[in-house]
Amino acid sequence: MQTELTVQEGANVQPEASPVLTNVSTRTQGRRKNPLLGTVRRFFQNKKAVVGASLITLFIVLAIIAPLLTHLSPNATSFLPLQAPSGAHPLGTTSLGQDVFSQFVFGTRETLSVAIIAGAGTTVLSMLVGMVSGYVGGLMDEVLQLVTNVFLIIPGLPLVIVLAAVLPKSGDFTMVMVIILTGWAWGARVLRAQIMAMRSLPYVESAKMGGESMFSIVFREIMPNMFSLIFANLLFSIIYAVLTESGLQFLGLGDLKAVNWGTMLYWADTEGALLSGAWWWFVPPGLAIALFGAGLALLNYAVDELTNPKLRSQSRRRRRLQRS
């Protein structure tokens, strides 16, 4: 939802914006040697961006260095069952005698790779459909819009549940495909709207007059200016992927032998971790999903603020006014 709204605001660049203020912003940018540097600096000044990026980096680093953090195998069932956290087992053990910490760090690896691949795939599909629909227009657009809306409205999860039950083996590949198939529509809609708004901008018109090909116009003239929107869309898709993936695995519809946040929760729930009070078993994976998702959401929020001056500068102005 939030991504869509960004589009409207982006498309709504006020034609009558005070020339004085426009002057200000161009001047300020012009004064800095490198505009990228300015963006980077503003990024680090934004609290939400910093917290969000740190959370995401933390999980990615965790996934990469997983084998360095523990020498215990996530699948080994050789420990005393249901041990509370201790020096030997920082997050305790499961009722099957597995080390929760080892499961958690290796699970991070598995969950993140599926989420990132599925999220990226979703974004690519959204982009393709959105660009073609928005740029080509006409009947093609009508049809693609119809398909997009149908996919949007058909509830993803029940479909995914049935798909996962019906399809033979729910490995990671099936998981990724199912997420992409049910998740692309929202992004396509958002990107289409933005393309529609940009299609008639003077510089795109002039590229068209200059005889640039559609491919080149879309990918060289339009895309670079939609970077923030595509990035926001990627973040949103990854959130969707993590939630869907973990949701399915939690329901036992993933590969139960695999170790990831979702199956950890599935086993914790099935083995009665709640009733036996083994909080160290079901809290870490859930909290991780929440924190990873929150990191993405914060970053998304920050990208919104950084790229949309209307959302950004006001609060600072108000603060000044209150002071004076």
Partner: peptide, 11 residues
């Protein structure tokens, strides 16, 4: 005065 990154006295 308009308040922004830099304050601007417009009138």
């Amino acid at each position: 005065t308009y308040f922004g990154d830099v304050d601007v006295k417009v009138i």
